[in-house]
Amino acid sequence: MSEMNSGAGITNEERVRLLADLAGINVTDEDLSEVANRFASLMDELDRLKELDLSNVQPVVIFAEEP
């Protein structure tokens, strides 16, 4: 479970509702479950990247022609 999905005492749907409110995005009751599933999965997948040593990597935009 990712760092964003692991808060004690709060469900994925409640977390999404909270974040959406802060971001000013209106998630309807009908969509809430699907948005929560998508968000939880995205966070879990991106959490796998914590295995990588990224400490010396600059997050530059990549162009085809190297500087």
Binding site: V16, A23, V27, D31, V35, A36, R38, F39, L42
Partner: peptide, 9 residues
């Protein structure tokens, strides 16, 4: 739903 979930990252 795809865009809304991505907007919360």
């Amino acid at each position: 739903t795809r865009l809304q979930s991505a907007a919360l990252v």
